[in-house]
């Protein structure tokens, strides 16, 4: 066990956990930030996507000891009032069915659009390809990313 100081959603948090613990479980079990989801545990589905210094990463494969002073943003911290353009676009297109993968989808989309605010359809598909949606909302996700890109 070791003590780690983490910068999460603009707040400094201390946790005492095994240094191999993936950030996913630090967020969920130790900090009650349960918006980040467990899907596969091997970085294949994207449900656990968070931002590390603004880049989308899979939190299930990121040990707490590797974070250092990097800034973590989770779905809970993406916007103040749930009004990030990507979140708003998700609502506009009424994307979610079961909803379980959507936090990860949104985090991937938000990081992607920051670097590429005017993507082509193909670029959107490539960027979102690591996030599985078992309900199959892909066409709506693509439309929502396009809508968000117009507002960014």
């Amino acid at each position: 066990m070791a003590l780690f100081t983490l910068n999460i959603n603009g707040k400094t948090q201390e946790v005492d956990v095994d240094s191999n613990t993936p950030i996913l479980w630090v967020l969920r079990d130790h900090l009650d930030l349960v918006g980040t989801k467990f899907g596969c545990g091997i970085a294949q589905c994207g449900a656990c996507t968070i931002h590390l210094d603004g880049n989308a990463v899979r939190s299930c494969q990121l040990p707490v000891s590797a974070v250092g002073s990097s800034v973590i943003t989770t779905i809970e911290g993406l916007s103040e009032n749930g009004n990030h353009p990507v979140q708003e676009a998700w609502l506009e297109h009424d994307v979610p069915q079961c909803g379980y993968c959507q936090a990860g989808q949104i985090m991937t989309a938000a990081a992607f659009l920051k670097n590429n605010p005017n993507p082509t359809e193909e670029e959107i598909e490539n960027a979102m390809n690591g996030n599985i949606c078992r309900c199959g909302t892909y066409t709506r996700i693509k439309a929502a990313v396009q809508t968000a890109s117009q507002k960014l």
Binding site: D29, D32, L33, V34, G35, T36, K37, F38, T74, I75, E76, L78, G82, Q87, W90, L91, D94, P96, G99, Y100, Q102, A103, I106
Partner: peptide, 28 residues
Amino acid sequence: SKKNVDGENIVTGKPLFALDHRVEGMKY
């Protein structure tokens, strides 16, 4: 058409699933 009643909770990462439930003294 009406929007999904849980839409806002979903896109903001609110606890909606059994796996998100937490109570005092809970074990894993």
